[in-house]
Design a binder for these strands. Structure first.
Lengths: 210, 210
DNA sequence: TAGATTGTTAATCGATTAACAATC
DNA sequence: TAGATTGTTAATCGATTAACAATC
């Protein structure tokens, strides 16, 4: 029963964190929790917890609190984690294999169905449970399969070309590990960027300005 | 000539992005730029550019703009990118090797001087230009070398133990790829977290709520 | 019913944008 | 000098926190 309209990005980016904490509480067989208690654990304010949750509906019960299990399920639905979106990984290098091997995509709303690389030496090798295909097969593959998103694990210099091909084939959702500004080029795309070097520079700043 | 006092995190997290764009402009031999032009390129407002930069000093010249080279250098200093902070990588798995092989630490303010793993099969192998040491050698190594930061590329379950050891040995700065809440346990640490799964869930939300 | 805790409105705080005087 | 563009103050906007009436 979403109230939505338009939820602010600040709220949205906190949802995965709520989900993590609720999953943990659920695993510990905690079955109810108040906004005050949850706020304490997460190190935020109770007001924020209630405001955030109420963007999507009244999941609590006055005088009682929230059902952990129910709230976890609600957020799971809000995030859309059971969509099983079909994704492909572009680039079977270190980052490609890092995410393929360590992330539990199923639980994050995705299923990775293929991986592509242009390096002949990588083609045919195994990336987690899937086999690396030659990048030249991209068009054939995407014509035959409905793919929802692409995870770009290639350097900025390689993005331009491959992005053009992916976009032409209808891919509009990207998880981007490069510094290429996808959204500037293609306005109707949804892009989440992972800027590791920006993150590391921020650490450097904070160390430098302790 | 820092004005500082206390710069907000919003501003700080934008600095690496300014630095990237300025480096690029500099590489293209652009030697002056106005806040309006820079804002255009970066897709933000000119007001924000001027406000942000003026947190640290008056780097521009009225009627002219900013010297690209000078501004890039200023931000480099603000970020502290020439500190050459000594860091160690904990975990020689996919993420450890991904960052070791793909990030140019020197240009990001760091130098990775060692890598540790508890897996006997990984010990002795090469990670980029450094050799993987056994985690049991941690204490000996850290007693002999002044290390400024640790990059944790291990799963949450392994963090507790190793973090206790690192903290005891005086390491207070962390780049953290796990979901372990370092700062909750050790208040006087500086921590930058990389929560890839949170990021991916956000992509899922945005696809689900297009 | 009394106690607890939500949902929601109002107050505060901080961040972004606009405006313009200072000045190169 | 006239034109351009900064540095900075003021206005606006949005996000967070506080307060409390509704209600389980």
């Amino acid at each position: 029963m979403p109230k939505s309209d338009s939820i602010s990005m600040s709220v949205i980016r906190r949802l995965p964190r709520y989900y993590r904490f609720l999953s943990e509480l659920n695993d510990q067989n905690v079955d109810k929790i108040s906004s005050t208690k949850l706020a304490q654990i997460m190190n935020i304010t109770a007001s924020q917890v209630r405001q955030d949750l109420n963007c999507f509906g009244g999941f609590g019960q006055q005088g009682y609190g929230y059902s952990v299990r129910q709230l976890q399920k609600e957020i799971e639905n809000i995030l859309g984690l059971n969509n099983n979106y079909k994704a492909i990984i572009i680039g079977a290098g270190n980052f490609g294999s890092a995410i393929a091997n360590h992330l539990d995509f199923k639980r994050l709303g995705f299923e990775v169905t293929a991986c592509f690389d242009k390096d002949e030496n990588k083609v045919g090798t195994q990336l987690g449970s899937i086999k690396v295909k030659n990048e030249s097969e991209l068009e054939i593959f995407l014509t035959g399969h409905k793919i929802d998103a692409a995870f770009l694990c290639i350097p900025k210099t390689s993005v331009e070309d491959i992005l053009g091909r992916l976009y032409k084939l209808g891919i509009k959702n990207y998880w981007n590990f490069s510094h290429y500004d996808i959204n500037a080029k293609y306005k109707d795309t949804i892009v989440e960027n992972v800027h590791l070097s920006d993150n590391l520079m921020t650490l450097c700043y904070r160390m430098n300005n302790r």
